[in-house]
Design a protein around this nucleic acid. Structure first.
Length: 355
DNA sequence: TAGGCCATCTGGTCCT
DNA sequence: AGGACCAGATGGCCTA
């Protein structure tokens, strides 16, 4: 196989050169529907500049066929500039152009990826190692904007379940789990709670406590939900969340059956009230919403007013942060990475570890 | 092994 | 003419 980086371009020069003949000789003879997929690819199975052995012969034959036509009609004479013979100099120029264009395209895509990375970093759950895919990044960004708009619009708390639900809308389940975990509202936790109700007992191995309701966390060994694309609302059974601090105001907007990805999101203005938070809390109350174990670094951080309490994590064994309900078990430092902006991670962590 | 994700190459189109 | 942008194709890597 070809080596990955730029391998195709450099190693296939010979083929490219040969194919140029085809490209320049007979661009117009490719029965009008020549698409990028055939042009320039060196796929032995596909049509196009591939079978280069008797290239010229084939083209000539094709031309003859075209001219005679299937129904015997004479095809009109080809218009446009006469094809120029592919001289060595022209080949060189073409190749140089192509190489330059490829380089530009690479650079352009790198820029795009950098921008995506920047976007990832301002997402609610950021991790260098557990990178969101491009599409998930965009979806989450869309949801994030939407959710924040709602916060401004209706005063909904960013710690409410509605907020998480909005964030997770249309995301794949792993991403939903990650987000929910980052915001400490693991879907599995919800399911556990459901179970708890049935069993009549709270907190299966739960440690986290939120003001107004208890959050229970699954044990580390608990299997993750099956992989798949699910609505957040399928995961978050808010109405089953007994004792929740906030009434669930999410209507059918998020709770049932909207298509996972493509359905246009209702603009915040029109959904006012759907997620509206009727209760108002002071920032201070919000700050106290979650109390991590005193020994956990999250306690340190929350007592130092960062990160927001909703993003505090519970320590897992061996210094790992277990995201409730998610498959992700992150090393502590990475866990911090994922909720603290990069510029704060270093300083905060060094402070913690130095103490 | 299938499917998801990604990087790269490529030709077409539009714009300057 | 050349660059930017776009979308299709392809192959590699990774994971369930």
């Amino acid at each position: 196989m070809m080596t990955k980086p730029y391998g195709k371009g450099s190693e296939d020069v010979t083929e490219l050169v040969s194919s140029l003949g085809w490209i320049e000789e007979d661009l117009s003879s490719q029965d009008g529907d020549q698409t990028p997929e055939t042009g320039g690819r060196y796929n032995p199975n596909s049509r196009g500049p591939v079978d280069l052995g008797s290239e010229d012969m084939d083209e000539e034959e094709e031309e003859e066929e075209e001219e005679s036509g299937l129904d015997g009609e004479k095809a009109p004479k080809r218009r446009g500039p006469k094809k120029k013979k592919m001289t060595k100099a022209r080949l060189e120029r073409f190749r140089a152009r192509r190489v330059k264009a490829n380089a530009r395209e690479r650079t352009r895509m790198h820029g795009l990826n950098d921008a995506l990375d920047n976007l990832r970093q301002v997402m609610p759950c950021y991790s260098k190692t557990q990178k969101l895919s491009k599409i998930e990044t965009l979806r989450l960004a869309r949801n994030y904007i939407w959710a924040l708009s709602e916060v401004l619009e209706s005063g909904q708390s960013p710690e409410s379940h509605g907020f998480v639900e909005m964030l997770c809308k249309g995301l794949s389940q792993p991403t939903s789990n990650l987000v929910a975990g980052c915001l400490q509202l693991g879907p599995s936790a919800m399911l556990i709670n459901k179970l708890d109700e049935k069993c009549g007992g709270p907190g299966v191995g739960g440690v986290g406590v939120q003001q107004g309701h208890s959050l229970s966390y699954p044990s580390p060994g608990l299997p993750s939900p099956p992989y798949g694309s699910l609505e957040a609302s399928h995961l978050l059974h808010l109405k089953d969340f007994k004792g929740a601090a906030y009434e669930n105001h999410s209507s059918n907007e998020c709770s049932n059956g909207t298509p996972p990805y493509d359905g246009p999101l209702t603009p915040p203005l029109s959904i006012s009230g759907n997620f509206a938070l009727k209760q108002e809390r002071s920032p201070h109350e919000t700050e106290r919403n979650y109390t991590p174990h005193p020994t956990h670094p999250a306690h340190y951080l929350s007592s130092h007013h960062y990160p927001p309490s909703s993003m505090a994590r519970l320590p897992g064994p061996q210094g790992h942060a277990l995201f409730p309900g998610s498959r992700y078990e992150l090393p502590l430092d990475m866990a911090f990475e994922s909720f603290a902006p990069p510029h704060m991670v270093t300083s905060q962590m060094s402070t913690i570890y130095s103490e």
